Computed example of a mutant assay.
Amino acid sequence: MKPAAFSGPFALGTFSAPGEAPFPGLVVPDGHVLDLRTALGEPALTARAVFERWAELLPRLHELAADAQADRQPLDALHVHAPVEPRQVFQSGANYRQHVIDLELAHRSPDDPRTVEEARAETAEIMDRRAAEDLPYVFIGLPSAITGPYDDVVLPSWAEQPDWELELAAVISRPAYRVSVEEALEYVAGYTIANDLTDRATVFRRDMKAIGTDWLRSKNAPGFTPLGPWIVPAASIADPGDLRVTLRLNGETMQDESTKDMLFGVARIVSYASQTARLLPGDLVLTGSPAGNGMHWGRLLRDGDVMDGSITGLGAQRTRCTAEVSR
C-alpha cells in the first residue's frame, strides 16, 4: 500500500472501483479512502455537493479522518478521477513574471529590431508596471477540458505546438461576489494541481490580430486540463504564496519554481474574478504557470511523452500523451 502524499490529515477526491460509479472520497495519508456517500448516509452525494456545504461538513470530515475504525478502501484498488466537476473555471494568464518574459522572447518575430536584452528588459518593465497597477488578467476555461490526474492526454491532430503549464488551483467553498482581497481566502476550500495544456500555435488569431487571443481553440480540447489527484483543505497549506511547482517531462525537470514569482496571489485573483462573476462552490481558480514551458525549452509535447507534475503539499499527477488517431 502506497501512502498518499499531501499535507494535513486528509484530502478530498473522486474515486471509483472497477465497474462502479465514481464517488466522493476522503483519502488519508496512509493510502486509504473512505466513501463519503456511506459515511455521511447520502447515496447521491458528489464532491461538488461537499463544497456546497463546506462549512457544515468540514468538522465532520475531520472526525471521519481521525476515526481509525472507519470502513476504508485501499487507494491502490481505485481509479482516481478529477477531484471535482466545477461549473466554472477561471484562469489567470501572464501571472508569473519570469514565465511571461520567457514567452515574449520565444514568440519574438524574426524581424524584431530589438536585441534579446532589450526585449527582455522591455517585458520585465511591462510586468513590473502590471504589478504596480494591480490589474490581473483572468479568462474563462471549459469544465469539459478537465480530465483525471493519471489519465492519458490525447494531443489533437490540429495542435501543432502542444505545451504544458503546471499550475496551483484554488477550489471555491461558497458563493463569492465582489469580495475584497482581505476576505477572499475565506472563500477558498482548498487547493489542487492543474496542468493547463496549451497549443501555442493557436493562442493568437493570425487572421484577425486585433482580436488577440483565442483561448477556446488553444486551451480547451478534451483532456487539456489534467486535475488533481485530490483537493487539500486550505487550512493544511500554510502559505499558497510559497509552494514549489515542479513538472518533469520524461524524467527531466522543466518547471521548478516557487509561487512566490506570481504577480498576483490567490486572494487577489479570487477577488478580481469575483468583481465581475459570481464564483460558485466547487469552481476552480487557476493561478497561472511559472517559467519552464516547452516554448522556453524549444521542446513541445509529442506522442509518448510522460508528464509528472507536483506542488508542495498537494501530491503529484502523472499523465501520458498520445497522438490522436486519424479518422
Rank of each mutant, 00 (worst) to 15 (best):
residue 6 F to W: 13
residue 6 F to N: 06
residue 10 F to C: 14
residue 14 T to G: 00
residue 17 A to D: 01
residue 19 G to K: 05
residue 21 A to G: 01
residue 22 P to A: 14
residue 23 F to R: 05
residue 25 G to N: 01
residue 27 V to L: 02
residue 28 V to C: 12
residue 29 P to W: 04
residue 33 V to T: 08
residue 35 D to H: 04
residue 36 L to R: 03
residue 38 T to G: 14
residue 43 P to N: 11
residue 44 A to P: 04
residue 44 A to F: 12
residue 47 A to D: 06
residue 56 E to I: 13
residue 63 E to D: 10
residue 70 A to W: 15
residue 72 R to T: 14
residue 74 P to W: 12
residue 75 L to G: 09
residue 80 V to D: 00
residue 80 V to G: 05
residue 80 V to M: 10
residue 81 H to I: 15
residue 86 P to A: 13
residue 89 V to T: 05
residue 92 S to Q: 14
residue 93 G to H: 10
residue 94 A to G: 06
residue 96 Y to D: 00
residue 98 Q to A: 14
residue 99 H to A: 11
residue 103 L to A: 04
residue 103 L to W: 15
residue 105 L to Y: 04
residue 105 L to I: 15
residue 108 R to I: 06
residue 116 V to W: 03
residue 117 E to Q: 06
residue 119 A to R: 13
residue 120 R to P: 07
residue 123 T to S: 01
residue 127 M to T: 12
residue 141 G to A: 08
residue 146 I to G: 08
residue 146 I to C: 13
residue 148 G to L: 15
residue 148 G to C: 09
residue 148 G to K: 08
residue 150 Y to N: 06
residue 154 V to F: 11
residue 160 E to F: 01
residue 161 Q to V: 09
residue 164 W to D: 07
residue 166 L to W: 03
residue 168 L to M: 04
residue 171 V to Y: 03
residue 175 P to Q: 05
residue 175 P to K: 10
residue 177 Y to A: 15
residue 177 Y to S: 13
residue 178 R to M: 07
residue 180 S to P: 12
residue 182 E to Y: 10
residue 183 E to F: 01
residue 187 Y to S: 12
residue 187 Y to Q: 02
residue 188 V to G: 02
residue 188 V to Q: 01
residue 190 G to E: 05
residue 191 Y to W: 12
residue 193 I to F: 06
residue 193 I to P: 00
residue 195 N to P: 10
residue 195 N to D: 14
residue 196 D to K: 04
residue 202 T to E: 09
residue 203 V to G: 00
residue 204 F to S: 07
residue 204 F to V: 14
residue 205 R to F: 09
residue 211 I to T: 01
residue 214 D to Y: 03
residue 218 S to M: 06
residue 218 S to E: 11
residue 222 P to L: 02
residue 227 L to S: 04
residue 229 P to W: 11
residue 230 W to K: 08
residue 233 P to A: 07
residue 234 A to E: 10
residue 236 S to W: 03
residue 239 D to H: 05
residue 242 D to C: 03
residue 242 D to Q: 07
residue 246 T to H: 01
residue 250 N to L: 14
residue 254 M to D: 08
residue 255 Q to M: 13
residue 256 D to P: 04
residue 256 D to F: 04
residue 256 D to K: 04
residue 260 K to E: 05
residue 263 L to N: 01
residue 263 L to S: 05
residue 267 A to Q: 02
residue 270 V to S: 01
residue 272 Y to M: 00
residue 277 A to F: 06
residue 285 V to Y: 01
residue 285 V to D: 00
residue 288 G to K: 07
residue 288 G to H: 03
residue 289 S to A: 12
residue 292 G to H: 00
residue 295 M to N: 10
residue 302 R to G: 11
residue 302 R to C: 14
residue 304 G to Q: 06
residue 305 D to H: 05
residue 309 G to V: 14
residue 309 G to P: 05
residue 309 G to M: 09
residue 310 S to I: 06
residue 313 G to A: 07
residue 314 L to A: 12
residue 315 G to S: 12
residue 316 A to E: 14
residue 317 Q to P: 06
residue 318 R to D: 02
residue 321 C to K: 14
residue 325 V to W: 02
residue 326 S to I: 12
